[in-house]
């Protein structure tokens, strides 16, 4: 089984979000970058398939050279080969288009992306890839089992889950549940050493398939002071919520 895991390179969840160049670009200064958490769950599930079913794992990122440490981390955790499409994507469609081209040329049985990237929160890349490659798609996937070509999976729905059967080739939008947090792996020394020897292919491109352009960013207004209510005056809280906030 050949697996491709899409890796988005995102600011760590504790990062302060700031913008530069006249509020048109995300300010990377001092920011720690990590594998997008949803992708990390997917990668860990892929490694499970590697260990149990002899799968091979390629990881792919559409980005500039600064994303390579993140790809190396994926190699250190257990992926076999990394691919970087050398392009600074303007939107989710560009990412989906480049990854789809790569899939069409290299053919995979299983493609794992995340439900959403925690930076731009597009929530669109896996669905676009599925339509561009005509591959079955399960979004918000929280369980994935494969035997031969048959897939048994679950997806999160509002208020519960749906159990689905499908076939390879398949793409998923993954999230926690594929594996648990305690299953995530921290790269060890041996993994890091091996990762240095693994192949990291850079694919050049001059295309710009984007269909939307990010123009500027703005941070929310700082909030006013909290209104404190004494624990002995619960009625006052209810009154404020009803009359002032109109929330009851």
């Amino acid at each position: 089984m050949k697996i491709l895991v899409c890796i988005s390179h995102v600011p760590d969840t504790t990062s302060k979000i700031n913008f530069t160049e006249n509020n048109s670009k995300f300010d990377k200064a001092g920011v720690q970058f990590v594998i997008n958490p949803n992708d990390e769950f997917g990668l860990t599930r892929a490694i499970w398939f590697k260990e149990k079913n002899n799968a091979t794992i390629d990881v792919i990122n559409v980005g500039l050279q600064d994303t390579e440490p993140t790809l190396r981390k994926a190699l250190a955790i257990g992926a076999d080969k990394a691919v970087r499409i050398n392009h600074d994507p303007k939107d989710g469609f560009s990412v989906a288009k480049f990854i789809s081209n790569y899939i069409n040329e290299n053919s995979y049985d299983l493609i794992i992306a995340g439900r959403e990237s925690i930076d731009y929160n597009g929530g669109m890349v896996p669905g676009m890839i599925s339509a561009l490659t005509n591959i079955n798609f399960i979004d918000k996937c929280i369980a994935l089992n494969i035997s031969g070509n048959s897939v048994e999976a679950s997806r999160e729905i509002e208020g519960g889950k749906e159990n689905i059967s499908s076939n390879l080739p398949l793409i998923i939008g993954g999230q926690k549940g594929l594996v648990e947090e305690s299953d995530l792996r921290i790269p060890n020394m041996r993994g890091i050493m091996m990762a240095r020897k693994k192949e990291l292919v850079v694919v050049e491109t001059s295309e710009d398939p984007s269909v939307t352009h990010s123009k500027s960013f703005e941070k929310p207004q700082p909030k006013g002071e909290v209104t404190l209510v004494s624990p002995d005056e619960i009625e006052k809280l209810i009154d404020l919520l009803h009359n002032e906030a109109k929330a009851l």
Binding site: G92, F93, A96, N121, G122, G123, M124, V125, P126, G127, M128, I129, S130, A131, L132, F137, D139, K140, E156, I157, E158, V211, T212
Partner: peptide
Amino acid sequence: SSSNSKYIGGMLSVLTDASYVTN
């Protein structure tokens, strides 16, 4: 922005050849 609508949004944007913006 429901789970189901977001599930189909990306696919639909390719089918219709549209620019797609979420949130």
